[in-house]
């Protein structure tokens, strides 16, 4: 009987190259490495500043935020500007869809305004897939976070940061701590770490904040933070949202910090050169102690900078893949045309 384990990967084009970026699931190591290497090239090795390049001149990118965001949206906008694209950012949670316009109508309207790429954030898991299935063939979709499903560029910038600090990922043990269940960032991080063949991925948290089948994600589960932190190279903290207390998944911020908060004492259980990451915004004293967040092992602010380079890399790769495909198709047509005309010449003789 039919049991399809993987859905068709709609984010790749006929050449197997990235067309949309919706999730990291189903991508190969080469896709991820290409993005990380390209991101590297956007950073000036001397000043550590991000270069401005004309790669997307004349291209129009629309940032559609159906859900509020400051950090992701700002870094996307900066990345787009550094690529010299024309950009437009729309806050949609308050406008069209509230007036009863359907999601698709909104999308098609914006598409008619000549967009080449949509950067989309939406509260519903699968929203980016949905958009990618319905946009015109020449339009690209970049997922900037959909529900609890995926946030691929965040995970990529985390990988970039890890690689910068620790070198190759395949040798590393990584622990992710906190609200695993509701986090799209964690889901994407786990996929990225698996694709890059990290030695071990651990998730640490209470059962109420872990998915029912963590094994399905290919991770080791720890409920005890002290045990889970032993010997790891990378510690990733996840933001704890207020709603989790309201729905009785955990008792209080205070108790969470007591049991799962990252303190200097706990961090000492990890490898001495372990790095501490957090996708932000951080809750000091809830999931992380200020001393750790601002400490020598923290790379939290560098993550933000790298986020720009990584997003530039994703957007430029997608546009260049499209250009390559178009060129190949044009050459193909030309060849067919030449063959036809040769045949006609033959026929005339």
């Amino acid at each position: 009987m039919k049991a399809r384990l993987t859905a068709p990967n709609i984010q790749l084009n006929e050449q197997g190259k990235l067309k949309h970026l919706l999730t990291l699931e189903g991508l190969k190591q080469q896709h991820l490495l290409e993005i990380l290497d390209t991101a590297e090239s956007f950073i000036d090795p001397n000043s550590n500043k991000i270069k401005k390049v004309p790669l997307l001149r004349g291209k129009s990118i629309m940032n559609l935020f159906f859900e509020p965001s400051t950090r992701t949206r700002t870094t996307f906008e900066i990345a787009e500007k550094r690529l010299s694209a024309d950009i437009e950012s729309l806050d949609i949670q308050t406008s069209a869809t509230k007036k009863g316009e359907s999601l698709l109508d909104t999308l098609w309207n914006l598409q008619a305004m000549q967009a080449d790429m949509f950067v989309i954030r939406h509260a519903e898991s699968g929203a980016a897939h949905f958009f990618a299935q319905h946009v015109a063939p020449h339009v690209h979709v970049l997922n900037a976070g959909d529900g609890q499903h995926a946030h691929p560029t965040q995970a990529l910038l985390d990988m970039f940061t890890i690689r910068k600090k620790k070198g190759d990922i395949f040798d590393l043990k990584v622990a992710i701590i906190g609200d695993i269940l509701h986090s799209r960032v964690v889901r994407s991080q786990i996929q990225a770490l698996s694709i890059l063949e990290a030695r071990e991925i651990r998730v640490i948290g209470p059962k109420t904040l872990l998915p029912e089948n963590p094994e399905a994600l290919g991770v080791h589960v720890y409920h005890d933070i002290e045990e889970g932190l032993q010997d790891v190279d990378v510690v990733i903290m996840v933001r704890l949202q207020n709603e989790r207390m309201k729905s009785a998944l955990i008792p209080s911020e205070k108790e969470f910090f007591k049991r799962y908060g990252l303190t200097e004492k706990r961090l000492a259980l990890a490898k001495p050169d372990a790095i501490v990451m957090h996708p932000g915004p951080i809750n000091r004293g809830v999931e992380i102690d200020s001393a750790v967040a601002d400490g020598a092992q923290s790379v939290i602010l560098e993550q933000v900078t790298y986020g720009i380079a990584v997003r530039m890399a994703v957007m430029s790769i997608i546009m260049s893949n499209a250009a390559q495909l178009a060129q190949q198709q044009a050459e193909q047509q030309e060849r067919e045309f030449n063959l036809e005309s040769e045949a006609e010449v033959e026929g005339a003789r």
């Binding site: 898991s125 529900g147 499903h149 995926a150 889901r187 998915p211 029912e212 089948n213 963590p214 399905a216």
Partner: peptide, 15 residues
């Protein structure tokens, strides 16, 4: 369904 698929897709689950 509350299972590996909803875990992977981040879909709110029904146990």
């Amino acid at each position: 369904h509350d299972g590996p698929v909803s875990s992977r897709l981040g879909l709110p689950a029904i146990s």
